[in-house]
Write a protein that binds this DNA or RNA. Structure first.
Lengths: 235, 235
DNA sequence: ACAAAAGTGTTAAAACTACACCCATGG
DNA sequence: CCATGGGTGTAGTTTTAACACTTTTGT
């Protein structure tokens, strides 16, 4: 077992990080993928990933990788799962710690992202030829996002600071690929008292809709206590 | 990024597995810890752990480690979280994938466990001087167990195949360190139609209580759809 | 004036909570 | 016969789900 003696003899292993990056463009929930390889004839896509540096914590590495691709810092980032099947990477045995991130799609730096040949794909239309076990990672991430979003109000992370109730509803509908009754939806959201109604209206529609922002205090406090938030996570 | 070229140059890292093993003795929810080191004067405890072998999947390694300590196979085992802070292991940088297991305490092999100087500790009385970040692991595991147990009927994993409703209630009370109304509890449990009532009674009390067993078919099918199962997981 | 999206209230059904008595048996 | 733990029902409250009309304003 774990004693000083045994450390030196232990085989080491490559450790990588992969990020499933979710964004919302107002209509669809999307995932950011990067194009692989140099051969332009083969469209192989993969998650954004990288190696773990020796003096870097796991989450710091996930932060770094996200920053390298999107230019974003301080985004919602959560460890998803660790994938370590011996055959997952045909080149060499690699353990991959997967993180999922929620970003406001308006904020990310599309120039950096273009340099990595990145592209947003709607979750209903993910390309088929993904690297390694990235398909499994994406599936699990979507499942986890739905699970958490059903129980916690974390959908805000995907929207600008100020947003309207109809926008939020569209987001939840995109996450769950369904529709909700707008009366019940707004009642349920507002009953959390997590949103502050602003005086301004967003006038993208004719009538315009009131803007809201998250009450950050309450959000952080009660982050763990909104069960059955908008939908039953039965999949 | 990840191409053949970069593999060889990447620094590798030790990968370990640690298991948080939950057991229920009819009264209390307990965790199995092993005594560390050769010095008997210092009571340092740790989770059961081990190194990842080069040709072994993560879950297989977790299975193996669990088997080595308890003699049990085919138990409920779920990946919890991966811990990789650079300073978590003072000897050498190690990434640890933590799994939590639920076992029927009657079944495990106490002889094997004794050989490892293992001991069951009630979750309300975990020793303080734990190895590395094992305290954090245990905390997270308890939180996760409560979270999942509140939403899914996975408590059965901790009981024998045949059990009574009062036994099951005691288990849930031990998990959540609270009490439930027995009428509401049994109604809620039975409304899932996941339990099959047997003709036999367990006569440990004077009147005796009917035994039930899990309807394995339904359990596997609906494993993901019991929200708000017995308690609100608000911690 | 009309099309398009925002906003709002009611009612019936279901789920939840709290609560108290009888039953079967071993000692 | 009585102490122990098992088993069951009801009523009040809360939560959920289903449903339709009015408001605002840009065109």
């Amino acid at each position: 077992m774990l004693d000083k003696h045994s450390y030196a003899q232990q085989p080491k292993c490559l450790v990588a990080l992969d990020s499933i990056i979710f964004g919302f463009d107002g209509q669809q929930l999307k995932i950011l993928l990067v194009k692989r390889g140099t051969d332009p004839s083969v469209d192989t896509w993969s998650l954004m990933g990288g190696w773990l540096n020796p003096n870097e914590n796991l989450e710091a590495a996930a932060d770094r990788i996200l920053y390298e691709l999107t230019g974003l810092k301080d985004v919602y980032l959560e460890q998803l799962y660790t994938f370590g099947d011996t055959d997952r990477d045909p080149i060499e045995r690699t353990v991959a710690v997967a993180y999922f991130a929620l970003i406001n799609i308006e904020k990310y730096d599309s120039k950096i992202s273009q340099a990595h040949h990145a592209h947003w794909f709607p979750i209903s239309n993910i390309p088929e030829n993904l690297l390694f076990d990235h398909e499994k990672m994406i599936e699990l991430a979507i499942q986890q996002l739905r699970y958490k979003a059903a129980l916690h109000p974390l959908g805000f992370e995907l929207l600008p600071e100020k947003f309207t109730i109809p926008q939020l509803q569209k987001l939840y509908e995109a996450v769950f690929l369904t529709t909700f009754d707008k009366r019940n939806f707004s009642r349920k959201i507002l009953s959390t008292h997590l949103l502050i109604k602003l005086k301004e209206k967003q006038k993208s529609s004719k009538k315009g809709a009131f803007l809201y922002e998250v009450d950050q205090e309450k959000y952080k406090l009660h982050n763990n206590s909104f069960l059955n938030f908008v939908a039953n996570p039965e999949f």
